[in-house]
Design a protein around this nucleic acid. Structure first.
Lengths: 349, 349
DNA sequence: CTGAAAGCGCTTACAG
DNA sequence: CTGAAAGCGCTTACAG
């Protein structure tokens, strides 16, 4: 008995269709559709009655049927090779937040750096007719492991390689570095070193530029070029030991680190070696990886790349594109934000 | 000119339909469908010709049209309140891996612990007619912030509260603790302490049980009940300082920590205080949070909860459920795995 | 072996 | 103000 369904208001039954609603309300399917979508014209009473009936039946429109006719799936794909999720998860959170209000859901496709997997996931998104695609990466100078063919839907990139004719959002690494170093300068540091990741990363080169720029603008001595190593605590620790080995007069009194892991290792080494942070040496990190930054002793002052905001902007831009609006191509560099904790000696604001 | 499309083999055009394929191949739509789905009977040549045409046109079946008729969306929803992604991301990776081969994609819905957001996301999944739902949480004794109504699709839980009539996958915390403590015992530790998180967590109580059980089974002294604090390095550090303050004869020579952060803080405190790890005190953690465990000095021996495998099993179980197979209700506790590094003094295997 | 027809659950012109 | 009809892109009995 179909009518049984009508007796269970609490029971969300996925099989209740608009046909059932129309029948129960004594109207045609077309009228039911219009009432529910606030379209067309009809008496307020009719509209309300139909809605009440729909609600009591637990009617939920079938998004796929709707998609088929509207040619919009209300779905987007998030393609990423960041399986660890360090960068992508905050991006995904911002993205979802920007989309959920418009009823758009996101397919998560995380795959290893392997062309086969990437292709499978891409095809899956294409078959699902996503309205748009967000490509999220681990670094701004690498794309996905596959060549994207000319896609029938708009694409937006986040924290990933992006050519001039594409649309992308990345953190402004140079500006972030400037902010970090200026903070060290504001904390009265005069000899500011830079310890960072591999120079093969564009982000490393940009941050180094920011460091150099800020130091020179302040008329401070430019210490030996950035110490470059891998993105690890171990490298930071070793760098800290090297600092300890220097004659005190030559030692930096401030260090801008390329990421939080390096900063943490460096601080640990300094502390073990008897130097005080921030009194003897101030340190700023990069990433604001909270679990690490907060646990550092002392808690780490660092640069937040605003990944969440990057995701949010990517989302609303993608929505614009899907709606057919024109969006100027090119890469947007979003401002980073200084997060003051205790490793610099400044009072948190 | 529609015919233009036929001239662009490289161009993946989402607007090529099965109708275009049929026309180009000179067969009916039904025949084209059968050829592409390997159904029905026809000459091998016909089938191949149709496929070639489809490929040259860049035809991709519209998954939503297909879903509408097959009543299967080939889509599942991953609902989680773990916005940080620490637990959910490995779960999601395992889940996707189990599903992608079957052409099933996953919607990621991460939301804060707030009933409103949860409800919006749930409704969105319902409207999208997901074939099934995975509920992933941050702890095994809490569910989502909303009551799930009787859902019209199967649900599987991971690392989340799960009643006896539901289906869930969680790490076997007690067994993991046993493994950890037995490893300390194998490393010739006799006085084994336990420093862990808040007792309000079921996982904490289960791990404490495992600790107690292993210690007693080995006939070792049961030291003062677990030290309980928050899940932070700071608490671990303070606990380490307390250890240092004890008379050496009373001091534990092994510590099983409730998570990796506590272990790291504790090790740091011991090291700062002049004790050697693992020589004076062996330490085992819990979580195998690699970025932390590997960076600890010395690298941390710890318990891996197998989140990826949890996700994988949840995925294949959900697939069974969707296919109508019977699955015994109840919660499955999956074995944890010891990851040997250097904080215990044993050689990594 | 192949095709015409009905139908999945909706929306949208178009008539009345 | 309301409804019948066509159609979104497929699949699946059912005829031939």
């Amino acid at each position: 008995m179909d009518s049984d369904l009508y007796e269970m208001p609490g029971m969300e039954n996925a099989r209740v269709t608009i046909k059932d609603v129309a029948r129960a309300a004594g109207v045609s399917i077309a009228t039911a559709s219009k009432a529910l979508n606030d379209r067309g014209r009809m008496t307020v009473e009719t509209r309300q009655r139909i809605r009440d009936v729909a609600a009591s039946l637990g009617f939920m429109p079938n998004a796929m049927a709707r998609a088929l006719v509207s040619q919009r799936s209300f779905t987007i794909g998030l393609l990423t090779n960041d399986t660890y999720g360090r960068f992508t998860l905050p991006v995904a959170a911002g993205l979802s937040a920007a989309l959920i209000d418009c009823g758009v859901s996101v397919f998560l496709c995380a795959f290893e750096d392997d062309a086969g997997q990437a292709a499978i996931n891409l095809r899956s998104m294409l078959e699902k007719r996503v309205d748009g695609l967000v490509i999220a990466g681990k670094r701004i100078d690498r794309g996905l492991p596959i060549e994207l063919p000319r896609l029938p839907m708009p694409v937006v990139r986040v924290n990933s390689l992006c050519s001039d004719d594409q649309i992308g959002f990345v953190p402004d690494d140079r500006e972030g570095a400037l902010t970090a170093v200026n903070h060290l300068i504001a904390c009265r540091r005069r000899r500011i070193a830079h310890v960072t990741g591999p120079t093969s990363f564009l982000a490393v080169r940009l941050r180094a530029e920011g460091w150099e720029q800020a130091v020179q603008a302040a008329g401070l001595p430019l210490l030996d070029g950035p110490q470059s190593g891998d993105w690890s605590e171990a490298f930071g620790f070793r760098s800290g030991q090297q600092l300890l080995a220097m004659p005190p007069a030559e030692r930096p009194d401030g260090v801008f680190c390329g990421n939080d892991q390096i900063a943490r290792g460096l601080i640990d080494a300094l502390t073990v070696g008897g130097l005080r942070v921030p009194d003897d040496v101030s340190v700023v990190g990069f990433d604001n990886w909270e679990v690490l930054a907060k646990a550092t002793r002392p808690p780490l002052t660092t640069i937040d790349m605003g990944l969440n905001e990057l995701g949010r902007q990517a989302g609303s831009t993608l929505l614009d594109l899907v709606a057919g609006k024109h969006v100027e191509p090119g890469v947007r560099r979003l401002a980073c934000r200084l997060v003051v904790r205790s490793s610099c000696g400044a009072q948190p604001l």
